[in-house]
């Protein structure tokens, strides 16, 4: 009977906290649904640019499911650099040359497989397809999968932990009454928000440096660009996590409700971070990725670490991250109005 009392109490608590109840049911469904959208997308279609390739071969590539665009030599190189295509095939004196974009090992593999098939069809008599001359724009054939998604993980983990810690800490400031005490002092609302940003910013800088250093020097993850850019991007990404965490904490009444933001805010971002190829998902879903800070951070981190790109290529992502942080900081100052009008 005592056990029954306990069971009934737990059920009653659930029904009083409708939000927890809803989340336990809805969140797994949302995440499963998103995963199905990401993983059930139609199969990957390699985007290949061809230079000087016989029309007959172009057609064969298309028959195998590739999206083929014909370029002249310079335009093809540019398209490859801009990630519009995944590979270039060119014929120099009749010998096929392949240049892969290279940053995603699984794409590399699929393109090479497709080429081998086509080459075999081309001259079945030879039995063995002519050896392909393969070069890589980024990376190499030795690139491991971890080199590909490592940069995303660096961004993700700094985002995740800073989001949680700053959110919970700001929440405790509110539930513990210290926020009220701060607001009873001459402190301005924006001073509270900026204080939080700077205080956690220092902690975050330390965290970002350590994570990046550990991944690059201890785990030996591929690092083609500048360490300082990696640091800058990780820091800015953590800044968005920090501001978002403190902002969302005003919509949570306790730690439990703060954790509920993980499946709603953090997990979906993983889908847009580039860990999974979004080439095949619906446009509206890709559009959703445009509001996920992690997608910009991860994109920039990959540009620097795998592709060795410099400022001009990451600038846009950096500005977006700064923009997101500033926007949420302003929202935070307004959210505090709930507690004090001036």
């Amino acid at each position: 009977m005592r056990v029954r009392a306990l069971v009934i109490r737990i059920l009653k608590q659930f029904f009083h906290d409708k939000r927890t109840l809803a989340l336990m049911i809805v969140a797994p469904m949302i995440i499963l649904w998103m995963m199905s959208l990401v993983f059930n997308g139609s199969t990957y279609e390699p985007k290949i640019g061809t230079v000087n390739v016989p029309t007959e071969l172009n057609q064969k590539l298309k028959d195998q499911g590739a999206i083929v665009t014909v370029y002249d030599a310079n335009a093809a190189e540019q398209a490859l650099w801009d990630e519009k295509i995944d590979a270039i095939i060119r014929f120099d004196n009749g010998a096929p040359q392949v240049k892969l974009e290279g940053s995603d090992p699984s794409k590399n593999k699929m393109i090479l497989l497709l080429l081998q098939k086509v080459m075999q069809q081309q001259n079945p008599a030879a039995g063995q397809a002519p050896a392909l001359n393969i070069t890589y724009l980024h990376g190499s054939e030795n690139m491991a999968s971890f080199d590909n998604f490592g940069p995303v993980l660096i961004g993700f983990f700094s985002f995740f932990f800073v989001f949680l810690i700053s959110g919970v800490s700001f929440l405790r400031e509110r539930t513990g009454g210290t926020l009220e005490r701060l607001l009873a002092s001459p402190l301005r609302r924006w001073e509270i928000v900026i204080g939080y940003v700077l205080g956690y910013g220092i902690f975050t800088m330390f965290q970002a440096s350590l994570i990046a250093w550990f991944a690059i020097h201890i785990l030996g993850i591929m690092m083609a660009g500048s360490f300082w850019y990696v640091l800058l991007i990780t820091l800015l990404l953590s800044m968005t996590a920090l501001t978002l965490g403190t902002f969302l904490s005003s919509f949570a009444n306790n730690e439990l409700q703060m954790f509920q933001f993980i499946p709603l805010v953090v997990v979906p971002q993983v889908f847009f971070s580039g860990l999974f190829s979004l080439d095949n998902v619906a446009d509206w879903l890709r559009w959703l990725g445009k509001i996920a800070p992690l997608s910009y951070g991860a994109d920039a981190l990959r540009d620097v670490m795998i592709r060795g790109k410099g400022w001009s290529d990451i600038a846009f992502n950096v500005y977006v991250l700064i923009g997101i942080s500033v926007a949420i900081i302003i929202a935070n100052v307004f959210a505090l109005r709930k507690h004090r009008k001036i």
């Binding site: 513990g176 009454g177 210290t178 001459p186 009008k341 001036i342």
Partner: peptide
């Protein structure tokens, strides 16, 4: 409420804060 007045008031809430 007026920001300038906060420094003239000492406030102790019910929670220890």
């Amino acid at each position: 409420p007026k920001l300038g007045m906060f420094s003239k008031i000492g406030y102790m809430a019910q929670s220890d804060a």
